[in-house]
Design a protein around this nucleic acid. Structure first.
Lengths: 240, 240
DNA sequence: CTCCCACGTTGCGCGAGCGCAAAGTCGCGG
DNA sequence: CCGCGACTTTGCGCTCGCGCAACGTGGGAG
């Protein structure tokens, strides 16, 4: 995690990963290197907090490898997960909302490799690469849609339907095909699912046990595999 | 509602209202007139739909007088209210999220007077008045915070607490002092409150009847007056 | 003035999902 | 290989708030 390893990682990044990122796809290699040279790479261990809600927003980020959760904590200590950051995604972009602080807390769901830009470089990055700002606005829009959908779900759908939709979304954002089905690419506990669906761990466990018995999912400790995504879609969509 | 009336309204706007709008406060009169001259005024009657979710976003707006609801409709025909637009607020700003369509439906809660800019003028307005873009981003951030708070509320607070918070927010956004207390400045039915809190009309009615008996609120047909806002704050904050 | 309709109130029963409690299991560190 | 902590499962009872149903009520149109 020292300087040497970061430098090595950085080298690796420049050579392979970056050119595949959607956010840089319309950039010539020279500009891309300009923009990336303003950032520093950083590794996180699973569970590390990158930033906390309410903290001064000193940086913005792109996820290169791994997954992170954007969440909030209530005064009663309850966690609520708003979003899972996947590789290639931009996050911590409070500049887009003219906010001086982070709106959420970011915690690594797996070991991560991220690119970190100082917030004061925002204008410079945007000037060199207008697509960056466009991408950031687009990301913000997607997050808003996600939140709005979530509000709709919370008021109109049952816990079972919400869990089904959530698992489907997680596999579509971070799914990995295996022989047994589609697996969620990062550790997921019952508690995590509860925090992203607005249910209790107990309800999640009961419902997923039922699905396991029915053969729709296979789940072990911190692992979830969907064997019959179509059945879950059906549950998520069902009128009741 | 014809051209003459619009022109008169427009004249009136230029003379009185505009200079007080926060969004134009840092503009010299000349630039302000430039920006405003790109817009046309429009009046809405209570209940009119200004735009619908999913529709191509052809315009963006500033509310001058009156109130409107930003809402969504589910396939089952349920309405969910996300936001109440108050005078001075910018809305329909899908440009900020790089979206080609409106994310919500806008319906006038009272008769309204609004300014309408064609979406294709966005770049020109922003160029003439960078503060406009800043204001728009700020608005977007505020909406996101509102949505996130709502998700938290839906998962952690009781219906009674949510109704209390909602009424307090409505009076703080659109409150009018009267002898009896603070009145919400636009017509509000029990159904409306249900749609903004994620409850049923029946629950809202029951809870508000209780509050009326306790003397915290006075409510008649489509009208809500808070007599004891502090008591409602207490309910909204209570641990249970 | 009256009719009608939108809006509001209230009672009753039920069910989803929570809270609590207790016991089972996996896997890592020592 | 053992022990402990993190994670999971399951049962049971209860409560909040919904769904249904029926009955007020006020205000605007004609």
């Amino acid at each position: 995690m020292g300087h040497t390893q970061d430098a090595r990682a950085f080298q690796e990044i420049r050579d392979t990963t970056l050119e595949q990122l959607a956010i840089f796809e319309d950039l010539d290699p020279e500009t891309r290197q300009d923009v990336v040279s303003l950032a520093t790479p950083r590794r996180l261990k699973e569970g590390d907090q990158l930033f906390r809600q309410g903290e001064r927003a000193t940086d913005f980020f792109v996820m290169l490898e791994g997954y992170a959760r954007l969440q909030r904590m209530t005064e009663q200590g309850e966690q609520i997960v708003f979003h899972h950051v996947s590789p290639g995604q931009l996050f911590g972009i409070s500049k887009v909302t003219e906010s001086a602080t982070y709106a959420v807390t970011c915690r690594a769901a797996t070991d991560c490799l991220i690119l970190v830009w100082p917030a004061h470089q925002w204008e410079r990055v945007v000037a060199a690469h207008p697509g960056f700002a466009r991408h950031a606005r687009h990301t913000m829009g997607a997050r808003m849609r996600e939140l709005a959908d979530r509000v709709v779900d919370m008021t109109t759908r049952s816990v079972e339907q919400r869990i089904a939709s959530t698992l489907l979304r997680l596999t579509s954002d971070a799914g990995r095909r295996t022989t047994a089905g589609v697996e969620i690419a990062f550790p997921v506990t019952r508690q995590d699912i509860a925090e992203t669906t607005g249910a209790t761990m107990h309800s999640v466990s009961r419902i997923m046990s039922k699905w396991q018995r029915a053969g729709y999912v296979t789940s072990s400790r911190r692992k979830v595999v969907l064997r019959e995504p179509d059945m879950l879609s059906e549950i998520a969509a069902s009128a009741a």
